[in-house]
Design a protein around this nucleic acid. Structure first.
Lengths: 233, 233
DNA sequence: CCAAAAGTGTTCAGTATACACCCATGG
DNA sequence: CCATGGGTGTATACTGAACACTTTTGG
């Protein structure tokens, strides 16, 4: 698989083609340090000095788009088991100065600390960036991230996908906190708990969270981790 | 522009490529005869005997994806002024037997009778088909239509896009009828009128609809035809 | 005993739903 | 005068929003 990609890379021309190069880019989100973060790679190319980009790359022939997105997340960032879904496709002729590259963007969601990003070749570094403090971004990746944030905010309100952004076990306060950070608004604690527990998506665990100088919180777990349409907030 | 496309068509190989061919396909919807219809073209190719396909075709280099979608609607079906938005991208390696074609699908909405489809070369005929009585479809166009119908149903409920599916002037009953057909459920007349009029999207016209053996209905018009997020039903 | 987060119910307002009859017209 | 679709109001249930104090723990 990688051999094919390298072959394509060598042939990658500098100008427009009659055929397009098809790429995938993934906006991988997680919530840490009270901010929504996206995973970014620092480019090591002269055309883009000190610029960052989304994890992604070419799609191989005989490869499905979603598989390509998963593969690049794995190869570039060592991330597996993220929930990913297609976001939108960006194909403006001038979006990549090196030629006609049509990029199918994906949104990925992953629980914090569930993998350790490691730099791959061709990149200087890999970093989680808060989406409101992004560095200088290559291509149209700024626009892609903006689209992804809006999609995430929208889907939080009518689906259960939050399950892929929190750890296996979590407290209701942590869950509420994730919503507040992503939706950028405060929620009422009593209303949130009442509503969320009534949805029957969670099971209470026998143990409790400890660790602070305060009353221990009950730990919960999602009973089902498959996407569902439900009115949440 | 067309010359470039023909050039690409001639080179269109029979097997996989390292570069993909990028195409657009449009699911153009309208509501007529109490059914949701999609526009289809009858193929004239040996590989697909008696099969139908969505209007669409290749994207030219230096062309934006959405422009390509509009152009193909125009060239293949003589349709202009449809509201179109990107739906999803379909890129499975085996979705097109002739090679690796990545298709960016669009959803289009157009008022009934607002254009006259005319057959272009390379197609035997062009026809509106009810989405629940589709003919045999080429490629993965069945799946694309299914995705489009679901998207349309979803967006009707939280946006004002119905404006692009009804004529310039319409009665509230016609509007309600469009909702009922697409959402596949009956709505209460009094509640529908109360709700819709309270949204302040419509203006009443001085004239009335005539034509039946019954009381003439007030005609309305959308005051604004730009997409908005609003809770409708 | 103090600080910190966990946990818990009720009231109110606004919105969604259910429901039935008279009106204006053409034929 | 009759068939057809147009047009109207009220009562009830439900849901979202606002709001403050007690509990449990660690230090």
């Amino acid at each position: 698989m990688d051999k094919i990609i390298e072959t394509v890379m060598e042939k990658y021309p500098k100008k427009s083609f009659e055929y397009a190069v098809v790429a995938v880019d993934v906006v991988l989100f997680t919530v840490v340090r009270n901010k929504l973060h996206a995973l970014l790679l620092e480019l090591d190319r002269e055309e883009f000095p000190n610029m960052w980009a989304l994890p992604g790359g070419l799609v191989a022939p005989n490869e499905k788009l979603e598989q390509a997105a998963e593969r690049h997340l794995r190869e570039r960032a060592n991330a597996t088991n993220a929930h990913i879904e297609q976001l939108a496709t960006f194909g403006d002729p001038d979006r990549d100065p090196t030629g006609w590259v049509v990029s199918v963007a994906y949104m990925g969601l992953i629980a914090p600390h569930s993998f350790s990003p490691k730099t791959s070749t061709r990149y200087k570094s890999i970093e989680w960036y808060p989406v409101d403090e992004l560095p200088s971004l290559a291509y149209d990746h700024q626009e892609i991230i903006k689209t992804a944030v809006e999609r995430l905010q929208g889907k939080l309100s009518y689906t259960n996908i939050i399950y892929s952004l929190v750890p296996e076990e979590f407290t209701l306060s942590e869950l509420q906190n994730s919503y507040e950070i992503i939706l950028e608004k405060e929620l009422d604690k009593r209303n949130f708990r009442k509503k969320f527990l009534s949805l029957d998506l969670l099971e209470e665990l026998p143990k409790k969270a400890s660790g602070g100088a305060h009353r221990p919180a009950v730990l919960y777990r999602f009973t089902e981790k498959t996407p569902q349409i439900i009115s949440i907030l």
